[in-house]
């Protein structure tokens, strides 16, 4: 029973840790499927987290924080779009720029507005997305096996957690069952064909980039207002890149993205859990190795040793209407 409880706790923290990855990876999915590479997920998420923390601290409302985060992230996504869609700039370069601008300005503005060393003031319960208890969670917790699974693993998360997991089927539906999704995928594979059909490549890509902005804003909000009670500088700590890794790991498909994020979340939860304790058979695994594992796995995948990750064909190439 003790092992079982440990496992439930481990899975519970897996869910919590994978949610920001899931938001960010789904965000990247929209953009990259439309042919716009985005290594600026990290920056947009960070800017979103800061906006959420700052707006929630000033207004006291989590929803105002959410709105601010989405607005700021969408704005940064539009900057990326302006550079890479309208002006046909290098998408990688633009993403790098977004990351730096976000990293610097969140600290500078945070310090100037709140003077707490780059963090935003802690918000109270109204300023956070608190835990939601599913019906009968307390009543059922006594039931063996299923009880703890329901009351600890499924119940007691914030609204954003449920939203993140609902977004997976929703994204699948949008991409594979709507006209917008079909066009979005087409524009990432063969923009000239979409253009010939009389659909604006640029406008389609802009819409994809806006979706990315909205979702990275949600990712930031989760970090600042659900996992924590305010913004802390550099709080994304490379999660945007892990999300990018998850996206590649899942070969740009929504449902595998969820599993990849859960896997990377599990690795994170596991490494926190076993810190220092030796494992049977393997012995003591250095924490640093566990931290590097998502990146190592992604490199191995990219090299084609476990399946093959083929990006959208028009990814990274600006579309020129006439030559």
């Amino acid at each position: 029973m003790d092992l079982f409880n440990t496992l439930v706790l481990l899975l519970d923290s897996t869910v919590r840790l994978s949610v920001p990855l899931l938001f960010a990876a789904l965000a990247g999915l929209y953009s990259e499927r439309s042919g716009v590479f985005d290594i600026g997920l990290e920056g947009k998420m960070l800017a979103g987290a800061f906006a959420a923390g700052a707006a929630a601290a000033v207004s006291g409302s989590a929803w105002v924080g959410l709105m601010a985060a989405v607005l700021v992230s969408v704005f940064m996504a539009l900057v990326h779009g302006f550079a890479s869609i309208t002006h046909r700039g290098n998408q990688i370069v633009s993403g790098v720029a977004i990351n730096f601008i976000a990293a610097g300005s969140t600290i500078i503005l945070g310090q100037a507005w709140f003077s707490q060393g780059g963090r935003t003031p802690l918000v109270g319960a109204a300023g956070r997305f608190g835990a939601i208890h599913l019906p009968f969670a307390d009543a059922l917790s006594g039931v063996p096996v299923l009880g703890p699974l329901y009351s600890q693993l499924l119940s007691g998360h914030s609204l954003l957690v449920y939203l993140a997991f609902l977004l997976v089927p929703f994204t699948w539906w949008v991409l594979f069952r709507t006209r917008f999704g079909l066009r979005l995928r087409a524009v990432g594979e063969n923009p000239a064909a979409v253009d010939t059909a009389g659909i604006s490549v640029q406008w389609l890509r802009y819409r994809a980039v806006i979706c990315t902005g909205v979702l990275t804003g949600l990712a930031g909000t989760y970090l600042a207002l659900a996992q924590n009670a305010g913004f802390v500088k550099d709080m994304t700590a490379g999660r945007g890149f892990i999300a990018l890794a998850a996206l590649i790991f899942a070969k740009w498909r929504p449902v595998p993205v969820m599993f990849a994020c859960l896997l990377f979340g599990f690795l994170d939860a596991f490494s926190i859990r076993i810190q220092g304790t030796p494992l049977p058979l393997i012995g003591r695994v250095p924490v640093q190795f566990m931290q590097a594992l998502p990146y190592i796995l992604t490199v191995v995948l990219l090299a084609g040793f476990i399946g093959r990750a083929i990006p959208p064909r028009a990814g990274g190439v600006p579309y020129v209407k006439e030559r």
Partner: peptide, 11 residues
């Protein structure tokens, strides 16, 4: 640094 990368690079 970010702005230089944005304006001298991407834009």
């Amino acid at each position: 640094q970010g702005l230089v990368i944005l304006f001298a690079g991407a834009l």
